[in-house]
Nucleic acid binder design. Structure first.
Length: 572
RNA sequence: GACUAAUUAGCUCAGCAGGUAGAGCACAUCCCUUUUAAGGAUGGGGUCCUGGGUUCGAGCCCCAGAUUAGUCACCA
């Protein structure tokens, strides 16, 4: 076990002292809570007769002790409220242990307590709780980062991203803003769910483990099922399953789908992320645009009370209708080139002329996408539906009713980023099979994202799927936009991180068995020897000198170690 | 994957031309009896990310590695 820091040791001592006083630092019984910090702060100033017999619980976030009276900031799930603790109030009799020892000495910032009492206003004008009784509910053994705030200025913020993401629990304790982001995330999802349910659409669950990863162009994670002895893929999208359900006869189905893609990680990509996909029978992509607009407007209103949201310095207005523009028109607008009727060769030359990088494996669709991505995406700040994508880029989408080279597809761009993607879904089984075969050709050409052929999906279409419109929206990116967060890690509670590097540490017991004198083990660690392996490689003279030096420095009451002993330890 | 930067006390950060490791908060002991990032005094606390190298001497310079961040590549 790794060495404890001084502060951790002191807290463990306090823990033992509490037990010695007959106080259980981790009691089993429930603690009755009948008030929350936020409602007290909100309602008491209006009506001083309220909250005269309350019980509240939370974490101690700061303490100001002045003799026989103290102030504590208590943090519950809603926020913080000040406690006023007076010695003779919580210790009415002769025995002042609860105040003098338990509260003042054995409790710390980070401990969880419950108190009863009544609400009043201090001379400083702060609504506070006058405490009549105090119960220890959980002793904290690690010191929290201390974040202080005055007049809206935060001092010493706990801000190291690595620590915040790895120890999200600490982040949530000391950074109230972070807790709020995830409340908003839940509100967004709930708003969408009620919006869909109100219209009679059905929420469903489809497989995460799939033998054919379909519905998107992406590299999947591969796993293995032992009993079947087959490889399975973690889903990259749920589209093909939802469409099977439309074939099955549901009018509308949707799913909040956790997807997994074995690709790069950065501040807009996490290996697992959440998409919402919805499919509605007898609709087309024009209907879907109105549907999405209204949904986003409703989310913005729920969260902010207005359709205007500030996203990274841009004021975005989610008030419908959003701009609609065909892709080739936007390319023409930005570059002057009309790519609509170009051949693959002409597109390659255009890319070259525009300075857009290409490679051998790219087909027509990818070439146009490359131009669009490079020249247009970033310019689409206000919500814009980009429509009518070339057919090569959209193997699951219905051909455009007026132009067979295009598809009835839109992507919604907000603040220069893709947010949603929707089709009039392809329901012609023969066309679908042909498009899958084209993907196969791309795959053989080296495009490792080209789609697999899912024959069962084709079979489903052969039974007949009604005209259907489908839409997918990235929940994480939506949350980023709606909360103003700039990285996906900030809207995921537990973003993927590389495993924490664990320093291999040999236990005291192992050192003992290795023949090391017990009294010297702590000194050995201080000398930088934490494993048997390190011990074996140690230099006898250096270690011998180090140990006795440490003995002197730490004023140890043990005899100096003999060089022969150190030799024995090293040799084992 | 490439490049750049960061990594020092529980937290936030200083540190120089290579010469005994610092501050604030937190912690401990004491003082102060209604405070407001409380105040005062004293004190404890460090594998300066890891491993090599240069040097009489490295937190600092060189090489390699780890992690994180940013940019690019990749990524509907």
């Amino acid at each position: 076990m790794a060495e404890l820091t001084e502060q951790e040791q002191i807290r463990r001592n306090s823990l033992q002292d509490l037990k010695n006083l007959g106080i259980n630092p981790y009691p089993a019984a429930l603690y009755e809570v009948n008030a929350k910090s936020s409602e007290i702060l909100e309602k008491y100033p209006q009506d001083n007769s309220l909250f005269q017999d309350i019980s509240i619980a939370g974490r101690i976030m700061s303490r100001r002790i002045m003799g026989a009276a103290s102030f504590v900031e208590l943090q519950d799930s809603e926020g913080r409220i000040q406690l006023y603790i007076k010695r003779d109030e919580i210790c009415p009799g002769e025995d002042k242990t609860l105040y003098n020892t338990v509260f003042k000495r054995l409790l710390d910032i980070g401990d969880i307590i419950g108190v009863t009492g009544y609400v009043f206003v201090t001379q400083m004008g702060e609504t506070s709780i006058h405490v009549k009784s105090l119960t220890v509910l959980s002793k904290s053994l690690r010191p929290l980062p201390i974040v202080k705030e005055k007049d809206g200025v935060v001092y010493d913020a706990f801000s190291d991203p690595e620590q915040r993401y790895r120890m999200r629990y600490v982040d949530l304790i000391v950074n109230p803003h972070v807790r709020d982001v995830f409340v908003k995330r839940a509100q967004i999802v709930n708003t969408m769910r009620s919006y869909f349910n109100e219209q009679g659409y059905l929420e469903v669950d489809t497989p995460v483990l799939q033998s054919i990863p379909g519905g998107a162009a992406a590299r999947p994670f591969i796993t293995h099922h032992n009993a079947l002895d087959i490889d399975l893929y973690l889903r990259i999208a749920n589209e093909l399953y939802l469409k099977r359900l439309i074939v099955g006869g549901y009018e509308g189905v949707y799913e909040f789908s956790r997807n997994f893609r074995n690709e790069g990680m950065d501040r807009t990509h996490n290996p697992e992320f959440t998409c919402m996909e919805i499919y509605v029978a007898y609709k087309d992509y024009n209907w879907m645009m109105r549907f999405v607009e209204n949904m986003l407007q409703r989310i913005a209103l729920t969260l902010h009370g207005t359709t205007k949201v500030n996203v990274w310095g841009n004021e975005i207005d989610f008030k419908p209708p959003f701009r609609r523009a065909p892709m080739c028109e936007l390319i023409k607008e930005q570059t002057g080139y009309d790519v609509a009727d170009m051949t693959e060769e002409q597109l390659r030359e255009t890319c070259k002329a525009l300075g857009v990088e290409t490679d051998e494996t790219m087909g027509k669709g990818k070439l146009i996408d490359a131009i669009f991505g490079e020249k247009c995406e970033g310019t689409l700040i206000q919500p814009t539906f980009v429509t009518d994508y070339p057919i090569e880029m959209s193997p699951l989408c219905k051909r455009h009713r007026n132009n067979p080279n295009l598809t009835e597809r839109f992507e919604l761009f907000v603040n220069g980023k893709e947010l949603a993607n929707a089709y009039s879904e392809l329901n012609d089984p023969i066309d679908q099979l042909g498009r899958f075969q084209e993907q196969l050709r791309l795959s053989e050409k080296g495009d490792d994202e080209a789609m697999f052929i899912d024959m069962d999906f084709v079979r489903a279409l052969e039974y007949g799927m009604p005209p259907t419109s489908g839409m997918g929206i990235g929940i994480d990116r939506l949350v980023m936009m709606m909360t103003g967060e700039q990285s996906i890690q900030d809207v995921l509670l537990f973003p993927q991180m590389k495993p924490e590097k664990k320093a291999a540490v040999t236990t005291d017991e192992e050192f003992k068995q290795h023949g090391v004198d017990e009294a010297w083990i702590p000194m050995l660690r201080k000398a930088g020897i934490n494993t048997i392996a390190q011990l074996k490689e140690a230099n006898v003279n250096k270690l011998y000198n180090d140990l006795n030096g440490l003995r002197k420095k730490n004023k140890l009451d043990i005899a100096p170690v003999q060089k022969e002993a150190v030799e024995r330890w090293i040799e084992g």
